[in-house]
């Protein structure tokens, strides 16, 4: 490993160790915000691993998240909780692979619409299944506390960062950068572009499903409208774009301010959240196309005297 690599690894480790100490402050409000931030960090960072370089905007986060939440809700009676997390991950990865195989040869527009429809489709299937069996929702009763959920999410976030760091140093990471620049060139240098996209899309699929599985105990009562809310998909996109997808740590720079902003907004205007989310989206796309990290990079190269 080179020196900057060792440096960034050590800084990352220290930051995660610090983040893991949050529950010791024993402040319930801070802890609850912490869970939200950890959850969106995991979701937005893994989302950006795929959507950043490929420019395919995925709105499937809610589909994977809901799948994971239902894995816990349905499985908790039969299997130990710790086994449910990897199962959710595998299910999420498989669903992502299927979606990827079906859509990633198509252009980006079809992909956006298909992924948005996917969450709705899975939700309808589950609603239908529940109607057939006569239940409405499911109770998830465990001894898992908010602290446990926070630590699990923090560990998952560390895993996501490590995965992203390893991908960036792998042939897969190089391939996806090339195809993000020019897919035609990628194919002509010998890259199996469809395979690369499907493989990479499995990462956010698996991660979002595991996140859903981890959060199910927090909801206690799970029904399709909660588990598959499309708002989740949109919020993840907004946060990732706000932070910037050009860097591994970019999305988290969007997650933290947006979570606080969103707390304030949804407290003050509880009935206009969808509208405000839409406005936030437009504002980011128009004003900050490369996110906060893009701004930082531009400022840094201006300081160095190089053209931005």
């Amino acid at each position: 490993m080179t020196r900057p690599e060792v440096q960034s690894l050590s800084i990352g480790t220290v930051l995660f160790a610090l983040a893991a100490c949050l529950p010791f402050l024993s402040d319930a409000y801070l802890l609850s915000i912490g869970v939200t931030i950890a959850m969106y960090t995991v979701l937005a960072t893994s989302w950006a691993l795929f959507s950043g370089p490929t420019h395919y905007i995925s709105l499937a986060t809610a589909a994977f998240f809901g799948l994971g939440a239902y894995t816990t809700a349905l499985g908790i009676e039969h299997l130990p909780y710790w086994l449910l997390l990897p199962i959710a991950g595998v299910l999420g990865a498989v669903l992502a692979a299927l979606v990827g195989l079906a859509t990633l040869r198509l252009s980006g527009v079809y992909f956006v619409i298909f992924t948005l429809g996917l969450a709705e489709l899975v939700r309808q299937i589950i609603t239908w299944g529940q109607n057939m069996s006569g239940t409405k929702g499911l109770y998830v009763l465990t001894a898992i506390t908010e602290e446990h959920i926070y630590w699990q999410l923090t560990a998952l976030a560390a895993l996501v960062f490590l995965t992203g760091w390893l991908i960036a140093r792998s042939r897969l990471g190089f391939a996806v950068r090339i195809l993000g620049d020019d897919e035609e060139v990628a194919r002509h240098v010998g890259i199996h572009t469809a395979r690369v996209k499907v493989l990479l899309f499995m990462v956010p699929g698996a991660v979002a499903a595991i996140t859903g599985a981890m959060l199910a105990p927090r909801y206690v009562y799970i029904e399709p409208a909660i588990a598959f809310t499309p708002m989740l998909s949109f919020q993840v996109v907004i946060m990732a774009l706000l932070g910037g997808t050009g860097r591994l740590w970019g999305p988290i720079v969007g997650v933290i301010p947006f979570t606080f902003l969103w707390e304030a907004i949804s407290g003050t205007f509880p009935n206009q959240t969808t509208l405000l989310l839409g406005l936030a989206f437009l504002a980011i796309v128009y004003l900050l196309p490369n996110g906060f990290t893009g701004l930082l990079e531009a400022a840094r190269s201006r300081l160095k005297g190089a053209p931005a």
């Binding site: 950068r177 620049d181 060139v185 240098v189």
Partner: peptide, 18 residues
């Protein structure tokens, strides 16, 4: 068709790697 976001070396490396 250059790979616009990359360095000159990375452009050529693309051919060497794949």
């Amino acid at each position: 068709r250059p790979l616009a976001s990359m360095t000159v070396l990375e452009n050529v490396k693309a051919g060497a790697v794949f």
